[in-house]
Design a protein around this nucleic acid. Structure first.
Lengths: 220, 220
DNA sequence: AAAACATTCAATTGATTCTTTGAATGAAAA
DNA sequence: TTTTCATTCAAAGAATCAATTGAATGTTTT
C-alpha cells in the first residue's frame, strides 16, 4: 500500500467518525451512555427514539468504536468504548463552548446588548493605564488566562463574576476584556457590572488584538 | 428558552460540527490549511478538488468556524479559525490512532499474524512470575504506560522496539502485552521479536484485563 | 418444547448531501 | 471604463443517510 493510499484511508476513517458524531440523536445517545451503562429500551426512552431507530444508531456508534455491548439476561447493555472517547467528546464540547461565545455574523446583537456597552480602544487603554488607576479584568476561563493575559489583569471568569463582585473596586474604572472583537464574554460582563453600579467599560478588540500588536503578555 | 431547548440546540450545533468533519475532502482541506494560509486555487490543487467544489467545502468549514478568510489582492486566503481547532483535530487523530491498533471484528487477522503468535493467560503468567525469570514488556505508548502498567514491566513502545532490542534479555522469556485482547500492538511486537530470535510470547488479554482482575498496578 | 421478550435486521420512503456545470460577483489591471 | 481573473453562487442529477414498519434472532421463563 502506498503512502498516499494510507493517508487517504486514514482520512476516510476519520471522516466516518465525524459522520458518526454528526447526528444529534447519536450524540445524545453517546452522552447518555457516558453517564452509565444502559439497555437499548432505556436509551430509547431517555432520548425519545423508537427502539428500532435507537438500535440502529447504537450500532453505528459501535462500528465507530464509541460504544461496546454486553449481554445481561435478555437485555443488551451499552457502555462507552475503551478508546479515548471522552477526550474526543470533551474536545468537541470545548469547541462548541468557544463557538457559542463568539458573535457570529448572524447572531442577533440584541441578546448581548453590544450597542449599549461602552468600548475603549487599545490606544485609549494604554493612555489611561499611564495616567490613572484602572482595574483590568479578564473574564475568560482560568485556562485561557493561564496561557497569557494583559499584565496585571485580574481573572474572574464570567460565570463567577456575580459571586466575586467584592474583589472589584468601587472607586475607579474597570476595563473588562476577553478574546477578541467577536467574543461576547466581556460584553455580558460589562452589562452585569454596570447594572450593579460599577464603572465598567469593554476593551474593544480584546486579548488577541493586544498580543497581535506585540504588547507584553503575562503568563502563569 | 427552556433548559431542554438549550440542550437540544447545543446538541444540534455539535452535530453540525461533526457533520462538517464527516467528509474526507473537508478534513483534507482543514489539515492542509493547518499547515499554512492558502488560496482556494492552491487548496483545490493540493486536495485534488475542482475549484467550485473546494470553495463550497471551504465555506462549510468557515460556517463551522474551523477556518477564516482574508483577501490579498484578487485571492482569498484561508487560515485556521481562532477557536480550539487544532485541539479538536488532535483529539480526532488520537482516537483514530487508537482505533487503528484495535482488531476490529472484520479486520483480516492475516495482516497481523494473530494465529501464529503464542499466547499466555493471566494465570499462566502469574505462575511463571513466581517460578522463573520473565521479562514483562509493555509495548503501549509512554502516556499509557505512565497511567498504569504491570509491576516491573519495561516500557518500549512498538515503534521503538527495533532500535531498542539491546535492552531485552536473550536468555529468558519475554512476555509482551498491550491494552487488551483486541489490541494489535503486542501481536506485532511478538512477531518482530520472534523473527529476531528472541523467546517472546503475548499476554492474551492485556492490561485492561489485568486491572479488571484487581491485580496491582504500578504508575509513574 | 413453547411462549414471551428485548434487540436486531431488512426493505421502503423521504430527506440531505455531494459533485458538476455554467453563470454571477467583485477586486485589480489595462 | 473595460477587461481579466479568482472566487462564489445556483441549479440539477447522483449518491447517501435517517425513520418507519414488520419480520427475524436469540434469551429467558413457563
Amino acid at each position: 500500500m502506498t503512502d498516499h493510499d494510507i493517508q487517504s484511508q486514514i482520512l476516510s476513517e476519520t471522516a466516518n467518525l465525524g459522520r458518526t458524531l454528526g447526528q444529534a440523536h447519536r450524540l445524545n445517545l453517546l452522552e447518555t451512555i457516558a453517564q452509565g451503562e444502559r439497555s437499548v429500551e432505556r436509551l430509547g426512552e431517555l432520548t425519545g427514539l423508537s427502539i428500532a431507530n435507537a438500535s440502529q444508531h447504537l450500532q453505528h456508534l459501535r462500528r465507530a468504536g464509541f460504544v461496546q455491548t454486553r449481554r445481561d439476561g435478555k437485555r443488551v447493555l451499552y457502555r462507552l468504548g475503551d478508546g479515548p472517547v471522552l477526550e474526543l467528546l470533551t474536545a468537541l464540547r470545548q469547541y462548541v463552548e468557544h463557538q457559542r461565545t463568539e458573535i457570529g455574523a448572524f447572531v442577533d446583537d440584541s441578546r448581548h446588548q453590544l450597542n449599549r456597552v461602552e468600548g475603549i480602544s487599545r490606544h485609549q487603554l494604554l493612555k489611561r493605564l499611564e495616567q490613572e488607576a484602572v482595574t483590568l479584568l479578564d473574564v475568560r476561563s482560568e485556562e485561557e488566562y493561564a496561557l497569557g493575559h494583559l499584565p496585571g489583569a485580574l481573572n474572574i471568569p464570567l460565570e463567577e463574576l456575580e459571586s466575586r463582585l467584592a474583589e472589584l473596586p468601587l472607586d475607579h474604572e474597570i476595563v473588562a476584556y476577553c478574546r477578541g472583537p467577536y467574543c461576547v464574554l466581556s460584553v455580558d460582563a460589562v452589562t452585569a457590572l454596570c447594572a450593579k453600579g460599577l464603572n465598567a467599560r469593554r476593551l474593544e478588540r480584546g486579548f488577541l488584538d493586544w498580543r497581535a500588536a506585540g504588547l507584553s503578555v503575562e503568563t502563569l
